[in-house]
Design a protein around this nucleic acid. Structure first.
Lengths: 231, 231
DNA sequence: ACCTGAACACCGTTCAAGT
DNA sequence: ACCTGAACACCGTTCAAGT
């Protein structure tokens, strides 16, 4: 089969889906495509360009905005759509965070996102600040502090690695409890919920909690015609 | 002078402050210390360990919480203190985001942060969700979508790089306006404020806008004794 | 026009010495 | 106990060919 940019990007996305960004390099990507590393450079100009293209592939999977709905439902469902996409491609968050240029596809998504507010009566001023407040939530993620950024690779040692360096024996746990009592209380509260529905920290719940907190705030500002004191 | 872990970490932080994470590698770090690369490995076990140690240096610079103040003032000023520290060390955000293990110093900061809520009457349940909602804001940063993650290195081509690939001539601008009209409206609104105080997007203003939006929401939940429906 | 092969520069790190 | 020197494995990419 003839090589093409699309073929390269698709293979790269598939590879990253399996191995994470850490496992993605020009040599193994070329091997997956049955080609020598340098062949890739006819279709992507550099690894940066490859990563930009991969982001474009991901962005294309996000649903278009709802039509004929009020702003809150439209924004909310779009963010949650982005979230499911970003969770299908777990490497995308990290890659998105390190991009230094915005590709047209990324700009188009941003533009359409902003349009959901402007087209439904938000002022440019408020929309501007709202976009800042949402930040990366527009992609359906937040920087989480409790879970590890990336699982090293395809090895099954993932859980022991995320737990720290050594297995948590009783002495270790007690030492933890003495040094970081507040962390422990929060961790126990999360573990406590396990009994009912079999989940610890429900990331989806937490994401929507924070999202709705922001949407509530935004709704209030919009309703009372808020403007920044800067104009 | 005798090499020590502290000396290595201090030099690494200084190097990263100047060059960014991109410019930080074991060879140039060793050179800065007047030593051969392998000498570093007596004091840090790997580059990961080096980065962990550098984060610890940064965390140590964050002010302790205020005493005898209500929760909101305490949390707010602590977050803003973290923000000034993180802005002194612009590489720290990126490094923090890629850590897979929490060092004791990071856990201690987290614990103390949680304590600001618990010690002032917040329920464990609400505090848990609040911590998720704040996310990386507890370090004083949000993932910004409009500005570039890292300036490549010490070269003066920073502004032209952040602007994109080519200089924005009139034709380019008009094409942008047609494709991404909403992005343009927001950008113009931000530029418009320039006349008054000489700033475009004021990151500090935007950060506090989002922070206060969240704090308002949290205050409301706390005041009416909110609990998650999960218990 | 597209792909190949060999090679270069750079980086984290191992290993066997040195003092 | 601490530092050195040479070397290895891995990676992005240039360059000069091949078809």
């Amino acid at each position: 089969m003839r090589l093409s940019r699309t073929a390269v990007l698709t293979a790269a996305v598939a590879l990253a889906d399996e191995q994470g960004v850490g496992g993605l390099n020009m040599r193994t990507l070329a091997e997956d495509l049955g080609v020598v590393p340098m062949a890739l450079y006819k279709h992507v100009s550099s690894k940066e360009d490859l990563l930009d293209g991969m982001v474009d592939v991901v962005v294309a999977e996000i649903d278009p905005p709802l039509e004929g709905q009020e702003w809150r439902a439209t924004v909310r469902s779009r963010v949650l759509s982005a979230r499911t996409v970003l969770q299908r491609h777990r490497w995308a968050r990290q890659v998105l965070e390190t991009r230094t240029t915005r590709t047209p596809a990324v700009l188009a998504y941003t533009d359409s996102f902003i349009g959901m507010f402007l087209d439904r009566g938000f002022s440019v001023d408020l929309t501007h600040h709202v976009m800042h407040a949402l930040g990366s939530r527009m992609w359906g993620f937040t920087q989480e502090l409790f879970d590890a950024p990336e699982t090293p690779a395809g090895d099954a040692a993932a859980d022991s690695a995320s737990a720290g360096s050594a297995p948590p024996d009783a002495a270790r746990l007690e030492a933890m409890a003495r040094r970081f009592p507040n962390v422990l209380r929060i961790a126990m509260a999360a573990a406590h919920d396990d009994g009912v529905v079999g989940r610890g920290c429900d990331d989806q719940y937490e994401f929507e909690f924070a999202l709705d907190l922001l949407l509530d705030g935004i709704e209030g500002l919009h309703a009372r015609g808020w403007t920044s004191a800067r104009t």
